[in-house]
Design a binder for these strands. Structure first.
Length: 205
DNA sequence: CGCTTTTGACCGGCGC
DNA sequence: GCGCCGGTCAAAAGCG
């Protein structure tokens, strides 16, 4: 009675075929008290594990949608418990749950806001993370990548403007920020990063 | 009743 | 070859 299960081929197949799922990984740091940052999608927690690099446990979320294989990893910064590192894997193939700007919470706004501004920053850092994973001699490979980001992120997180939309997030900024995602003036930008986390139906069809 | 959340256990890959 | 870590799944419980 220990036969737990043959395990899902999804993970095995993904890893077997290409070591690591070639899914686009988009990570960014967000200053929030709650680990669950509502970005407009429904997430179901499917696991939680404690990592050595961080004294805090890492939470694994998955899109509740049927065909949506988007996964989200949420972990707190080892040095800044107030900072939450959210890593998105994959891209949504459906619209948001149903709530719109009206229901946009400050958390969601903060998330998107950071994503937009940090997008290019985290992208470079994150994209370099995989290959540098072993290159770095530091035991905290994942942290090292994040640590490299902080310098620039600190500005965003600790900055006045960012901080405003992150912690306090005024209604104006909250609405304006997400608005860009819903109505991306630059498709290239949307496809570049936001497309992974906020792919509007326009892109699909 | 349904959905979500929680914990444990197992597996897979990589490193040493 | 063994150990370690990370990641995922499964089942059960709780709550709305």
């Amino acid at each position: 009675m220990c036969a737990r299960r043959s395990m899902k081929p999804a993970a095995a197949a993904g890893k077997k075929g290409q070591k690591r799922a070639r899914q686009q990984r988009f990570a960014f740091v967000t200053k929030s008290e709650v680990d669950h940052l509502e970005d407009g999608y429904r997430w179901r927690k499917y696991g939680q594990k404690a990592v050595k690099n961080s004294p805090f446990p890492r939470s694994y979320y998955r899109c509740t949608n049927s065909k949506c294989t988007v996964k989200k990893r949420v972990e707190r910064s080892s040095e800044d418990p107030s900072v939450v590192i959210t890593t998105y894997e994959g891209q949504h193939c459906h619209h948001q749950t149903s709530f719109q700007r009206g229901g946009m919470h400050f958390h969601g706004a903060a998330t998107v806001a950071l994503a937009e501004q940090m997008s290019f920053v985290s992208t470079q850092q994150l994209y370099n993370l995989p290959p540098l994973r072993r290159q770095q001699m530091n035991p905290a490979s994942s942290e090292s990548a994040v640590s490299s980001v902080p310098p620039s992120l600190q500005q965003l997180n600790g900055g006045d403007e960012l901080r405003r939309s992150t912690s306090y997030s005024p209604t104006a900024s909250a609405v304006q920020t997400p608005s860009s995602s819903l109505v991306p003036p630059d498709v290239s930008f949307d496809m570049g990063l936001l497309g992974d986390i906020v792919p509007p139906g326009v892109r699909n069809g």
